[in-house]
Design a protein around this nucleic acid. Structure first.
Length: 280
DNA sequence: AAGTTTCCCTGATTGC
DNA sequence: TGCAATCAGGGAAACT
């Protein structure tokens, strides 16, 4: 499940490998992957001939600036649960769940592989704001690495809410980029139970939580993403974060800090892992 | 209106 | 052994 660190890992890889490369054409093997424009043929037509000026990230969205002189447009990608972007030679045998192929010069290819078919791509026409085509972007809250993620901001978003803090952390309209793994890890590092009601959090706890969020995301990026969920970077290499997890996916195993057994509960339909001794 | 549930999907795992 | 039920989860839509 690609979260911010995994998406950031992919972004950096794409910026190393695809910069200034020109799209010569493409094939869509599963049309629902293309969210916009509604015609798959128009999508391929629109992007063909343009060159990649750079990859950006907003939350878990990837945005490539495409230059088709003198115009520039945007290619948006969301990996959702199982999406992968792989930079391969066109002769590379197709992966089982290949959904979209973008052909570049020199027989190179950017391949979108996505087992569960939740991933999406958009081509946003030049002169159009990306948020108006990629609706999810308009709803995103602050980036965890932005100076806008202050204790005051978090307090203002949390203090009125009766939701569990874990559920709030997964809400992309508050903080953009956290998912189930790093939310659990951040709560563990903060010593806060996932079931804690947002409104009950003290300012000191919010400060600890804010710091922990930034720390776990930085650790995830430094490790090149998590090993969970078939995550691969653009070169097809798995990340290293899994072995470092304090609580995620460790129910029944001993807490690395206190030796207690890690527990699991379900909040808003998502598994939450925690240590009832370290978190309270 | 805020908060919860459902849905989309496939492969691995669990249970009878 | 074999098949069916369950689980996994990002985000949007449908619901309460």
């Amino acid at each position: 499940m690609p979260e911010l660190p995994e998406v950031e890992t992919v972004r950096r890889g794409l910026n190393q490998l695809t910069l200034h490369k020109k799209i010569m054409g493409g094939d869509v093997l599963f049309s629902p992957t293309i969210a916009y424009p509604f015609s798959v043929n128009k999508f391929i037509l629109d992007i063909t001939g343009s060159a990649i000026a750079g990859w950006h990230r907003r939350g878990k969205y990837l945005l490539a600036e495409l230059i088709l002189s003198p115009q520039s447009q945007w290619l948006g990608v969301h990996l959702r649960m199982t999406g992968q972007l792989l930079w391969v030679h066109q002769d590379e045998p197709l992966q089982k769940h290949t959904r979209v192929r973008l052909y570049f010069e020199d027989q190179q290819e950017l391949r979108f592989v996505d087992q569960r078919k939740f991933g999406q791509m958009w081509c946003v026409a030049s002169g159009v704001a990306v948020e108006s085509t990629i609706k999810g972007l308009a709803k995103l809250g602050v980036d965890p690495f932005s100076p806008l993620l202050t204790v005051e901001y978090l307090a203002s978003r949390l203090q009125k809410s009766r939701r569990c803090v874990k559920t709030a952390l997964l809400d992309q309209s508050i903080i953009a980029g956290l998912g189930n793994i790093y939310a659990d890890e951040a709560l563990f590092k903060s010593g806060i139970l996932p079931t804690t009601v947002c409104a009950d959090l003290q300012d000191e706890q919010i400060e600890v939580l804010r710091t922990a969020i930034v720390e776990v995301l930085c650790a995830g990026i430094a490790a090149g993403g998590t090993t969970f969920s078939n995550f691969l970077n653009v070169k097809g290499i798995n990340g290293n974060y899994g072995a470092e997890a304090w609580v995620y996916h460790r129910s029944g195993q001993v807490c690395k800090v206190c030796g207690n057994l890690i527990q699991r509960t379900k909040l808003a339909g998502r598994s939450s892992y925690f240590c009832s001794q370290c978190q309270n």
